[in-house]
Amino acid sequence: MHKNISSSQHDAVVCVIQANPIVQKQLDVLLAYLDSPILSFKSSEQFLQLCAGINVGCILLDGDQLGDDSHCLLDELSRMGLSRATIIMAQHANIDAAVKALQSGIADYLEMPQPDRVLLAKICQVMGDFRSVDVGKKS
């Protein structure tokens, strides 16, 4: 896990789950515009191992790394009360995957690329809508 920006522990954190280092770098630059701490994870497994205690504000999840067992991760996020904080970003988006993800309760599913301002606005909207959850308490 790489902590890009440090901030008060009470600030809601943007968690980026992204396997592609190039996309990760682009997101680092873009998310620096947000006044929020950012934590990066290379995989959803790593996120699930380390997320306890994080004051999650938004999860940016790489939709392209989700396999046939994506429902397991989506169910887990739902169980932890984090679905409404989750935005899936997919370069190879498809309707069935989008519908399944949204039916699980996630906040949004974005077909990438999106203009920077659109992505930032979506993140801010989700962070505003989602009441930050202490994952450690929920699980």
């Binding site: 988006a93 498809n94 309707i95 989008a98 519908v99 949204l102 039916q103 949004d108 599913y109 077909e111």
Partner: peptide
């Protein structure tokens, strides 16, 4: 003639 944004909006 659906696309991803249309499906997302419908479910949301």
């Amino acid at each position: 003639h659906g696309d991803v944004p249309m499906a997302v909006k419908a479910i949301q």
